[in-house]
Write a protein that binds this DNA or RNA. Structure first.
Lengths: 256, 256
DNA sequence: CGCATCCTTGAGGGCCATCAAAATGCGTGG
DNA sequence: CCACGCATTTTGATGGCCCTCAAGGATGCG
């Protein structure tokens, strides 16, 4: 059926999830084709790997086709997770306009990525302003998610941060029609979660126990099961509007 | 003298600080003129005011000409500061491509702003791809700063967060040739700083005392004085590369 | 000179880090 | 199949950072 992900992936196997559930409906067939054809190489990485490194300059950008990656910044001793990506995300469009990178991109579990040369992106900027705006939009989504993470870190305890992260990942997966109604598969470890929460893995473990005992969500190796969606979102102070999905569901009611 | 801020401001009074110290040298005279002329109205706001509100849709974007603004997100009880802007920043280019806003823009002290209609921005997207890329670049700078804040919040104590914030503000002011060699003027209160640190104003007060006693930096009503730049940056784990300034100074050495 | 806002200090308690140690699951090779 | 190594997960005890509640001092403005 036209409009479904299956239909999109049949025609655009590498970029069919790009902006799905958001502004993909605003893309013309021509634009979808241009983007799909911009990918000159596809790679499958089965082991965790740092595919982009802080400080370096690249002449391509990366589309995440399958799997998960983490955007990280290294500290003196620890690694810090500053954002998370799901299939359909253009993970480092940032390095197109910024040149050198201020962060790393680390894969988590098995991943399939597509590479787009910056030369192609420059052509798109020059010849297809509407598509260019959509690319811009996708980087602004990243910025909006970063802002939410800043607020989350300023406001929430570790258990609530985890609830927020689970809510966000689940919501984003559902927008690209991954995961299911009871939760999602993920290769994330407790240590990865700790990197994203600014906590130790030891404390994350206790916080996960709290979520389990409250019957909110359950983390097992390789899977997150949501026991109570409403409670999860409430506990994690999650309101999906910052993800700019389609439909009224994603309009935050707003606090008084 | 050509190239100095004074010379730029003489010709482009409202936009002469845009990307100064970063990619402004990459802007042609024509592009500078287009941007300056895109501002259809200038306003001076003497009292703290929320100039952009979460959830609303705007048909203009805002250039900060003088003064400071805070990008905030409201919680149930508290306000959270997710970023900070200095003169020359295009504070809400985000709302051009995102439509509705996921955050607020609050002024701090007296502020002068210029408004740019989105219609003009669409024309720039269509007719001036290079200038469009520079606008994109400026929003990516915001994203890079958000990432650094995420890391800062995951990693640092309140006193160190303050050191980081002071370092960042000072560095950004110097790029647009504001502030001076010993520090900078600012209308920020301890309560504003608390909103940016995810701490209470009470604790910020104690943390400022620590910076004072360590002879690192001094906060008085309306002014931050840096006593020891090297110590400030070290204590706050500040490395300026994420601000993408010109020159080798801003290239992080990188951790082993 | 009264009021509002901002700054400062003290006491008690909760969240989370650190140090230490053990249990579990998983793949490899004998 | 079992032994082993390794990463991941789990639990306990102690202490530091920061929150809350409470109160008072400074500063600026009408």
């Amino acid at each position: 059926m036209p409009g479904t992900i299956t239909h999109e992936l049949a025609r655009f196997p590498n970029t069919g999830r790009f902006l799905a559930g958001r502004l993909r409906h605003d893309m013309s067939e021509v634009e979808k084709r241009i983007l799909e054809d911009a990918i000159y190489e596809v790679a499958v990485l089965d082991k965790p790997k740092r595919i982009l490194e802080h400080g370096k300059v690249y002449d391509h950008s990366t589309m995440l086709i399958e799997g998960f990656v983490l955007r990280t910044i290294d500290g003196e001793e620890n690694r810090y997770g500053v954002s998370f990506h799901v299939p359909g995300d253009f993970v480092d469009l940032h390095c197109f306009a910024l040149k050198r990178l201020d962060h790393n991109i680390d894969t988590i579990g098995e991943v399939k990525v597509g590479y787009v040369p910056h030369k192609k992106l420059r052509e798109i900027m020059a010849d297809h302003p509407h598509l260019a705006r959509l690319l811009w939009f996708s980087t602004l989504l990243d910025a909006a998610m970063h802002r939410e993470w800043v607020m989350k870190l300023e406001q929430l305890t570790t258990a609530r941060r985890l609830a927020h992260i689970f809510s966000e990942i689940w919501c984003r997966l559902r927008m690209v029609e991954l995961g299911d109604e009871t939760g999602f598969e993920t290769p994330l470890t407790q240590s990865d979660l700790a990197d994203m929460c600014g906590a130790t893995s030891i404390h994350v473990n206790r916080a996960l126990k709290e979520l389990r005992e409250k019957d909110i969500a359950q983390f097992e190796r390789g899977r997150v099961t949501i026991r109570d969606k409403r409670q999860l979102e409430e506990f994690g102070c999650f309101q999906a509007d910052y993800l700019y999905g389609e439909g009224a569901i994603h309009l935050r009611e707003g606090y008084a």
